[in-house]
């Protein structure tokens, strides 16, 4: 099939960006969206033009590296699907597809469709960890973990940190990411000693990074490739509130 692409081009973080139009010819419907972009980029290179930059790594939906707002929806809008797992069979011959980077103050554009998502790393560094003292290796089953807690923590831990929640949120809020990463540890017995500090520090860092605030629209949950539930945001609100009431 043949498609028209409107792609955001921006040479660096300081320059003004603009949309440019490209033709994607002879696209096979079994290709992934990223493979389709590879084909277009190869043609650009053959013609001596600069290919557009976009992020990708594992291309099997588990690393969180791919991004792209496709026709106004991060990852293209198919339930539980990252851009790398989005296939061209969802598009029709002759379609025009608009492709943009994540847009948020906290995710500055590096080049074209690539944004700097280090803000997420700094939030993790602020509290998204469990401190482990040195010493002998502890017994794996020394701390009993309730099955319900383990399952819920695993649901939260499924977050791959892609940033689609920020990209889709009308406020560019990072609450779903922060809530998933804080809840993942706050639900487990191993996470209890640092629970209050974790909630406070991660929220504080999130605010400093310049993300917006959650207005519970639910769009983050709708685009999340790992289908992280909005309920984790309620849990972070609760954990932060409890820590605040303790005067911490």
């Amino acid at each position: 099939m043949n498609l028209t692409l409107k792609v955001w081009r921006q040479s660096n973080g300081q320059s003004q960006g603009r949309f440019e139009t490209y033709a994607a010819k002879n696209i096979i419907e079994d290709m992934s969206f990223l493979e389709m972009l590879d084909v277009v980029n190869e043609e650009l290179m053959e013609r001596g033009q600069e290919p557009f930059a976009f992020d990708s790594d594992c291309r099997e939906g588990i690393c969180g590296m791919c991004s792209l707002v496709i026709n106004g929806i991060p990852h293209g809008g198919h339930k539980g699907t990252a851009t790398c797992q989005l296939h061209m069979r969802h598009f029709k011959d002759g379609d025009t597809i608009t492709i943009e980077p994540w847009r948020a103050k906290a995710f500055p554009v590096i080049k074209d469709l690539v944004t700097n998502r280090s803000a997420f790393d700094r939030i993790i560094q602020a509290g998204g960890f469990v401190s482990v003292n040195t010493g002998g290796t502890p017994d794996g089953n020394a701390i009993p973990v309730p099955k319900i807690a383990a399952d819920a923590a695993m649901d939260a831990a499924a977050c791959i940190g892609c940033g689609a929640c920020v990209a889709v949120c009308k406020n560019a809020s990072a609450m779903l990411f922060v809530a998933a990463k804080a809840s993942h540890l706050n639900l487990l017995p191993q996470g209890q000693p640092e629970k209050d500090r974790r909630a406070l520090k991660m929220v504080q860092q999130m605010d400093e990074e310049g993300f917006g605030n959650c207005t519970v629209t639910g769009s983050c949950e709708a685009v999340c490739p790992k289908e992280i539930s909005l309920s984790f945001i309620a849990k972070l609100n609760r954990d932060f509130g409890v820590a605040t009431l303790k005067g911490k």
């Binding site: 847009r103 560019a172 993300f211 629209t217 983050c220």
Partner: peptide, 14 residues
């Protein structure tokens, strides 16, 4: 928090 607006934006799920 979003100084540059999207060209195309669909408020999915909201």
């Amino acid at each position: 928090a979003r100084p540059v607006a999207y060209g195309v934006y669909k408020p999915i799920g909201a």
